[in-house]
Structure formats: C-alpha cells, structure tokens
Design a binder for these strands. Structure first.
Lengths: 213, 213
DNA sequence: GAATGTGAATTTATTCACAGCA
DNA sequence: TGCTGTGAATAAATTCACATTC
C-alpha cells in the first residue's frame, strides 16, 4: 500500500468514502458479493473513474477484468475511515436537536458510543434522553479528559458555540460536529465540521428562484 | 448588473453566500455599518479575494477605497438567495428528527413557513409538534399542490426516502432537504440536498485517525 | 491611500483514455 | 474480453496581483 498521509487524500474524497461504504454495506446485506466501479457509479450517481481514483489513494482493492469483492471493499473503507474501532462521543446542549440526536440509534450502529450529554440549564440537568443523565456543563472538561472523549456534537445556541468549542479544545477533544448556526474559527488542532440547516435551505431557495429558465 | 444565470455561479459560492449573510446580519445588529472584504474574510476564515469574487457574480456591491455598506450587502445577498419572499416548507416524517425540526424556531426567522407535517404511522397522525396536526401520508400530493409547497424536509427511514421523494416530485415539489441516510437519485427537475450526520462523523474519524503525525 | 473588481496564474478536482492484468 | 489503476487532459475553484475608482 502506498502513502496514506492525509495530505495526499483530497478533502472531497473523504465524505465520498462514507457514501461508498453505506452503499456497499447495503449490497453486502442483499447478498451481492461482487461489484464493478461502473455499477457502483451508476447506483450512486457518480463517474466510475472517480470511484476508482478515490480508492487508489488507499491501495489496490480490486481485480482487473473482474471488479471488487464487496466484503473486502467494506473492510478496506471501514479501515480507511477509522471505523474499525469505536469512538466516544458526547452531546453538548440538550435542546431539541441535542435530545433528538441522543435518541437516534443510527450512530451506535456505526461504532459511535454516546458516552455523555451536557447542558447548562438546571431544568434539564439530571434528565435522561437515552444517553445517561444530562450533566451540568461545569463537569465538561473533567469528563472529557477522564472518558477520553473523541468527538463532541455541539447543539448549543449560536452565541455559546465559540466558547463551548474552545472549552472542548482545551479539554483535549479534537473533533466537533457543530450544529449551532455560526461558523466557528476552529482552535488549533481541532477539526470542526458544520451542520447548517438554514444554509442548506438557502442553497435550495437560490436554485428554486432561478428555476423559471 | 451582469448575467445572473445559475450556470455562471459556481456551486460552492451558493452556500458561502448563506455564510456571508449570517455574519453580515450579525454585524448589522451590532451597529456596524461598513465592512471590507478583508475584515469579513478574517471574521469568517476565508480569503478576501474569494469573497469579492463571490459577490462579483451578482453585481458590484461595494465602493473602491471604502468597502461595503453592511445594510446594502444584507439586502443584496438576501435577494441573491431568493430570501426576499417566504417559502412554504413541509416535513415528511414525524420521528425524532422531524419533530425536532418542527419545533425549531430558527427557520421561521429566515422566511421559511412550516405549513404542514406528514407521517405514515397512525400513532402520530393527528398529534401536534408546532406545525399544525400531523397529516397522514395519503394527503401528501393533494396538500403539496393546493398549498404550493416549495421545499420538503424528508426525515423518513432510509428505505422510504426514494419513494417519498418520487411522490414529492410528482406533486410539484422542486426542492428537498433529505435527512434519510441514503443518497437519492434526484428525479428530473428536483433539487435534493443531503444532510448526512453519519457521513459527517465519518469524515471526522478519518482525520482523527491520522492525527498522530 | 485604501479597498474594490477582475483578468491571469495557480491549485485542486474530475474525467478521459488506455496500458496492464485476470 | 472486461475492468482496474493511473498518467494525461480537462474543468473548476481559489488565490494572486494590479488597474481602477473613491
């Protein structure tokens, strides 16, 4: 296998790997055991060469003239994405979005262990939403260090997101999925991905407004 | 103003406009009335030339030597994104995510009117989550046509997403925000944007796994 | 002097097209 | 023959750099 430094992998390839993995798992569960880049491309709606090139950053997973073995490919991509072991996740902010996420069972299936949930409001501290009792925000740093938290999903109000992410960074959490509608300047060494529903809706209205042509 | 055909605007510019709009509104509400591309770029964490170029697809909004008037820019981008009138939105799927979205007040502030909510399960039909009573899925097409629904947020299980989006397309809904964890092949004339939380988490683990360098 | 608006240069991503192998 | 893996070609996006205007 050749060099797999993150700097060799285009940023856009990574989310596509997740896409491939999902489709491949589906194929596997349907009993399909071989697939070509052409088939996969058609199923997902991409170019076949793109799929092959994406794989090529990590190794040679297929057989010329034949295609890819689905089970092998699932294992390889699982490994590429770091999903061959589990990750400790917390939710900061036990509002509407935070509690919906806490109750969602889809994450556990992918190896994401929800180990804690935090909020600043006395009215929800102690309540339970499928992730143990909600802890007070004061416990955040201690908990993150002790429990080796890998990822925080931040669902606090916009005005608190920056400070929250700063605290997480200081407590050694290196990855954040931020649902607050602010683009936060990521502290050094912290990876922040933004989930921004208003922005998504606005991208839709942009094209809707131009659809008359 | 020059040509503003959607084909002249790079796809990546559109979500950035939403980002600019949010920051500019914040500046306006803080009483800031002028801003340079350099300032804005620093606040958001982008290159100043990129911001200027993004604006340039739509017109000339600034004054050389001076900068941009915040209020003017807010209006211009609001218009570019089609946000100077309101849009009718429905939610299909009254599960965890659907009900959380229904109760979220942030959308209304942006001009998104939640006009209906649908589910197939008898146990939730008739319940209310801040968007009127939940209607049965059988009413979907009739409702979309009558109420001129613009956008559907789809929060149904993965296996039902494709069929649901097909029905929406047939009923004249041209834009979908899909939360179901499947990349749906968009029917002709329908814009589908994907909100995929598992994929986002997987992108984070990819980089976490490589962080040791 | 200061900051925009934009061609040109650069970088990044996608797609083509074909050599190489089962 | 059929499909992978990958250099080369193309397309898209970003950034530079500067003429232009206030």
């Amino acid at each position: 296998m050749r060099n797999v430094d993150k700097h060799d992998v285009p940023a856009v390839t990574v989310p596509r790997l997740a896409l491939y993995l999902r489709k491949l798992r589906e194929l596997r569960s349907r009993g399909v055991d071989r697939v070509s880049s052409k088939d996969l491309a058609e199923m997902i709606g991409l170019n076949a060469a793109q799929i092959r090139k994406d794989f090529s950053y990590f190794g040679e997973f297929g057989t010329r003239g034949v295609g890819y073995e689905v089970a092998r490919l699932v294992d390889e991509i699982t490994h590429c994405l770091g999903l061959d072991h589990s990750w400790n996740v917390i939710i900061v902010g036990a509002g509407l979005m935070g509690t919906a996420l806490a109750r969602y069972r889809g994450f556990a299936e992918q190896g994401f262990r929800l180990v804690g949930m935090f909020d600043s409001s006395a009215t929800v501290i102690g309540a339970s939403y499928g992730a143990g009792r909600v802890r007070g925000i004061a416990e955040l740093e201690g908990f993150c260090r002790e429990e080796k938290v890998d990822i925080a999903m931040v669902t606090v109000p916009a005005g608190e997101a920056e400070a929250t992410i700063g605290r997480l960074a200081a407590a050694g959490v290196h990855a954040v999925l931020n649902f607050a509608p602010v683009k936060v300047q990521a502290p050094d060494g912290v990876l922040v991905r933004q989930v921004d529903l208003s922005s998504e809706l606005m991208s839709l209205t942009f094209y809707l407004d131009r659809e008359l042509d």
